[in-house]
């Protein structure tokens, strides 16, 4: 039995090594003294400094964050409404076909989603006789579109779990339907809404393939900037940037984890009382 356990540990270690090897390499080379991303020649912080003065990258970072915030908020608003509506629909065929349509952006290869939206924008651009339609607006539309399914599919299960009689009880006690929605249903589905919001935000932050096809020259996001830089030989400043993003995500995840553990402990303590 012990042998099996050691084997398991070894296996886990190997998988983690595989997953983290490239990340380790890039963090290492972000401190490289020379331009190379394959030969180490000493420790320096110059790439982190250079990053601070790289205006195009900082601009791309700003675009990415603005886009991620606006698209995730918009998708959460539209998606939550959609989930509430879909849940209430009486027409079976309409409900199921709407859910099928919702699945399309998740099932379709990203490259197809990207080019299909690009074709639509270009087509409309030709119709209204305008060139250079691709820009921030088209990026926003595309990001909201691929975020929506994730919001809907994380809110719907919460709606199914909510006790129907609760909102009826609230109405019997004098709430208007609208009040009962905001006082009873909304708090109950809040965890689902927040999951959807966080998922949309991170998906939007990291998306390259779809953005690549629907963005214009004036609306670079960080992944697109990284792509155009990896076309040539990459200098370690891209690695420095990625290391910073990695550390940020790591800290955020650890914080979320700690708060979860604390929450569980609290619950246990309350149960004991």
């Amino acid at each position: 039995m012990n042998k099996v356990k050691t084997m398991g540990k070894l296996y886990t270690f190997l998988i983690l090594l595989f997953l983290y090897a490239p990340i380790f390499i890039l963090v290492l080379f972000s401190f490289n003294a020379s331009h190379s991303t394959s030969v180490l020649s000493g420790f320096s912080l110059r790439w982190y400094k250079e990053l601070m003065y790289d205006n195009a990258t900082l601009e791309a970072l700003k675009n990415t964050i603005v886009l991620a915030v606006s698209s995730s908020v918009l998708a959460t608003l539209i998606g939550t409404g959609a989930a509430v509506g879909i849940f209430q629909y009486k027409l079976k065929w309409f409900k199921s076909s709407l859910l099928t349509v919702t699945n399309i952006p998740m099932m379709n290869p990203e490259i197809v989603t990207g080019i299909s939206m690009m074709l639509l924008f270009v087509f409309v651009g030709v119709l209204v006789d305008k060139t250079g339609v691709l820009g921030f607006t088209t990026l926003l539309i595309a990001h909201v579109t691929f975020n929506l399914p994730y919001v809907i599919l994380s809110v719907l299960p919460k709606l199914r779990q909510t006790d129907k009689h609760l909102s009826e009880a609230a109405q019997d006690l004098g709430c208007t339907p609208l009040q009962s929605f905001f006082k009873v249903v909304l708090p109950a589905i809040m965890p689902g809404i927040i999951t959807g919001l966080i998922m949309s935000f991170t998906l939007s932050l990291d998306d390259f393939i779809i953005s690549y096809f629907v963005s214009g020259p004036t609306s670079q996001t960080l992944p697109i900037r990284i792509f155009s830089m990896t076309k040539k030989r990459v200098t370690p400043d891209m690695y420095a940037l990625s290391s910073l993003i990695f550390i940020t995500v790591l800290v955020l995840l650890i914080l979320v984890n700690i708060s979860q553990v604390r929450g569980e402990k609290k619950k246990k303590a309350i149960k004991r009382i």
């Binding site: 997953l19 390259f208 990896t230 995500v249």
Partner: peptide
């Protein structure tokens, strides 16, 4: 919890840069 987090963590790092890093390897 830790292992799930460690599995998900690389997904948050841009895949272009991670793929590029494989070139150095």
């Amino acid at each position: 919890r830790t292992l799930v987090m460690l599995t998900m963590l690389p997904m948050w790092m841009n895949f272009l840069i991670r793929t590029y890093s494989w070139m150095s390897i």
